[in-house]
Amino acid sequence: MRKGTLRQILLITDGCSNHGEDPAAMAALAREQGITVNVIGILDQGAMDENGRREIEAIAAAGGGMSQVVYAKQLSQTVQMVTRQAMTQTLQGLVNRELKQIFGSDVSLEDLPPDKRGQVMEVVDELGETVALDVLILIDTSGSMKTKLPTVKEALIDLSLSLNARMGENRFSVFIFPGKRAHAEKMIDWTPRIEELSTIFPKLASGGLTPTGPALREAIAYFERKRSLRSWIGDGDEPYIEESSL
C-alpha cells in the first residue's frame, strides 16, 4: 500500500446551522473527495436540543466520520479521541479494501478468525502511527460559542500534543465561521504547530448567522486548492481516497 495523507475536517459547534446549504450534503461531498468530517458539539449544561444533536450526527454520518456531544470540560479528551478513532476507522476501511482485493470477495476484519485479526490490526496500528495527517479545524464562533472559545483553544493545543507524539507528520489549519467577508475565514494556514493559535482568538467578532454548510464547502475548497498547488510543484503526495461504497 502506498503511503499517503489522511485528510480530516474537524467541525466544532454548539448548535444548528441557519444559513445556506445543508451541512450534511457538504459533508457527503467532502467524503467523495476523500476527506473525513468529524463533528463535536459542545454544551454548557443540560442537554443539546434534539435538532442540534440530529444535525451533528447527520453531518458526521454523511462525512464518514465520528460525532460526539460533550460538556466543555471534557472537550480536550474528546477532540483527541475522535480524531484518533476516525483515523483508525479510515485506515481500517482501506485495509478492508485491500483484503477484498486479495481474497476477491466480501472479506472484512470481522469475517477473519479472531487470531488472524491481530495481524491485520498490527498493520492498521502501524499505519496510524506513521501516516501523514492534515486536519482542517472549523470553529463555529457565532453567538453562544463565544464563551466556550478559551476551552476550544485548550482542546486544540491538547490535540496537537497528542498528534505530534506520533511518528507521522501532521499539519493543522484553522478556519472560523462566520467570517468577516466570506462564510469561513482562514485563521491559520497549514502548520505543524497549532500553538500559534494563542494569538488568533482575540480578533474574533461574532455575528448572528451560523452558515455551517457554506463553511464546510469553503473548507473542502481549501483542501483542493492546496492539492492543486502541490501538483504544480510535483510533490506527488496523493491523498487516500476512501470510496463511499465502503
Partner: peptide, 24 residues
C-alpha cells in the same frame, strides 16, 4: 516505545499537566 501513547487518563497524563509530551 517511540510511538504516541494510545490511551490515557487526563489526571495521570503529563501532557494534561503541561509537563511533557505524549510520546511513549
Amino acid at each position: 516505545q517511540g510511538r504516541a501513547v494510545k490511551e490515557f487518563t487526563e489526571l495521570y497524563d503529563r501532557g494534561y499537566w503541561g509537563l511533557g509530551s505524549r510520546k511513549a
